[in-house]
Design a protein around this nucleic acid. Structure first.
Lengths: 213, 213
DNA sequence: TGCACCGAACTGAAAATTCAGTCAAGCATT
DNA sequence: AATGCTTGACTGAATTTTCAGTTCGGTGCA
């Protein structure tokens, strides 16, 4: 855990959060990690390999991220738990910002590198799944497909708000407000005519899949 | 409109949609546009200048994109108009895909390049504004701040769904379904307790602003 | 004549990648 | 307990690759 190799991965995450995946210079990473450039090639075959491992590392961390608060805030106020988990991503602290930016980079990079997609889709899927469970707790009346769809919407929204935040189009506090509003819209929906109903909207499958471009 | 210079910008957009901003090689762009490398330096001072113009070009196009269907589908069924405009971005055609990917790149790049942020925020703002107007038409009962907030949510969601689509985490058709569902959630909301109400959520300002990281 | 353009050779710098070799910890020998 | 052998972690200094950007002679054309 505290070996040199992992330290390099940690440093790589930091550098990526600062410069972006494609802005990462092996030399700069070496400096950041306080090791020699060659050590990086010793541990990882080449830049591409390093990147692959780092992105694994990032999505792993993103997993635990969501998984961590599981034992703590459950069963009291389900809606508050839900807000808690989602708003976690819109927190202006070094750690969250780093992770969030790195995750965004992972997303953006995957658009041009098909290799990353599978991992990414898997991590996304578990995140959506976790949120869907929280939704089910907060809204026991709804159907499972409806919860799945709402979870996909809310998590996608979090990602959308995050980039806007990090790209300077939206202050964090406002993003938080908007997200809370969205949770409200999803939970307080009692559509009278059944138009665009969640059950219908979720008919096509269980959620995350692999699309053809 | 059909001069060489604009053709280069169009080609640049195509290349960016294929390789990303940081993956754009001046040589490759020249090949794509069918011109010589030197011509690019003839028209644009350097790579950075080229990029600046191209990104202007992209956000301009994104503007007209939304503005274009204005004359056509107005005043009959406001809700359908709204769906129309938003769903436009989740259309699996070369043109839309190119533009959408390029826009996403612009977003992602802006995270690490503060120069781009102002332009980006401006374009985002007009988009949000347009959608807010459509929302007002579709839901005359609501307040302006509520519409503004809903518009920010829906447009951010579109961006979130788009990256997921392009990064292979979500098939387009499913993304479209989800978006329709979100529109439903925003329009059919009649929250009983006023919790997380749109009016409250929009209290902090008129919408898009410039956040400090 | 001057503008838009080609094309190919070239420079320079920034990166990535390689490599020969050091250092220290183990570990079996005698 | 000194000896030599091995192995993994690590370094510094090359070497190689990749690009942006330049230069210049030349072409068609209004």
């Amino acid at each position: 855990m505290s070996d040199r190799r992992t330290e390099i991965l940690r440093a790589a995450t930091r550098v990526i959060a600062r410069r972006g995946v494609r802005g990462l210079r092996v030399g700069e990473l070496a400096a950041e990690a306080g090791v020699s450039t060659s050590l990086i090639y010793y541990h990882f075959s080449d830049r591409a390999g390093l990147l692959r491992r780092t992105l694994d590392f990032i999505s792993d961390r993103a997993d635990h991220y969501t998984a961590e608060p599981d034992p703590a805030p459950r069963t009291e106020d389900p809606r508050a738990d839900l807000e808690q988990v989602l708003l976690l991503e819109l927190q202006d602290t070094v750690e969250v910002r780093e992770n969030s930016i790195a995750w965004g980079e992972l997303r953006a990079t995957a658009v041009f590198e098909p290799d990353l997609r599978e991992d990414l889709a898997r991590t996304t899927h578990t995140w959506v799944h976790d949120v869907a469970e929280l939704l089910a707790r907060a809204d026991p009346g709804g159907t499972a497909p409806a919860h799945a769809a709402a979870a996909e919407r809310l998590t996608a929204l979090v990602e959308g708000l995050s980039v806007r935040w990090h790209s300077g189009s939206l202050p964090v506090e406002h993003a938080r407000l908007l997200l809370r509003g969205a949770i409200g819209a999803e939970l307080d929906r009692h559509d009278p005519a059944g138009r665009g109903a969640p059950a219908a909207a979720a008919g096509a499958g269980s959620g995350v899949g692999f699309g053809r471009s």
